[in-house]
Amino acid sequence: MESIPSSGPLTEIMNEEIIYQNPLLFLKIWELGYDTPQFGPPAHWGWHSHMQVEFLLLMEGQLGVQTQHEYTVMSQGDIMVFGSFQPHRTYKYSPELLRQIVFQIDLKQHFDLSTMPYLHRFSELTHPLEAFNALFRSNADVKQMAYALIMQIYEESQSRKIGYELAIGAAIKNLLLLLLRNDNRDFSSLTEDIGISRVRPALDYIDKHLHERITVEDVCSILNLSYHYFIKYFKKVMGISFVDYVNYKRIKKAERLLLTGDLSIMDVSYEVGILNMAQFYKLFKRHNQCSPKEFKQRMRSQSALIPLLAQAD
Rank of each mutant, 00 (worst) to 15 (best):
V268S: 01
H211L: 05
F85S: 15
L32D: 00
P9T: 05
M59E: 12
H110S: 08
H69Y: 12
L25R: 09
G261P: 05
E155G: 04
R200K: 14
E255F: 03
I231L: 06
E96P: 13
L166T: 04
D78R: 08
Q68A: 12
Y227Q: 10
L119G: 05
H48P: 06
L259A: 02
L129W: 01
V243F: 13
D244Q: 15
P117L: 09
Q152N: 11
L180R: 00
M80C: 13
P95A: 00
R89Q: 10
A170D: 13
R300N: 13
I231H: 00
G77T: 11
Y233I: 00
S221K: 10
Y71G: 01
V142W: 00
G163L: 11
I13M: 00
W45G: 08
I231E: 05
P95L: 00
H50N: 09
E31N: 07
Y227F: 09
L223G: 07
Q302Y: 14
M145S: 11
S221P: 04
S189K: 00
P87V: 00
R181E: 01
N288W: 05
G77P: 08
A170H: 04
P23H: 14
W45P: 08
S301C: 11
K253A: 03
G40Y: 11
M299Q: 14
T115M: 14
Q38I: 11
D141V: 15
S75H: 15
E130N: 03
D193M: 11
L203P: 04
H211T: 07
Y93G: 04
L10W: 06
F187M: 01
P95N: 05
V73Q: 10
I13W: 02
K293A: 14
S241Y: 06
A278H: 11
G77I: 14
I101E: 03
S291T: 15
K28F: 03
H44L: 09
E212G: 05
M277L: 15
I274L: 09
F242Y: 09
T115H: 09
K232M: 08
I101H: 03
I19T: 13
A278Y: 13
A140F: 07
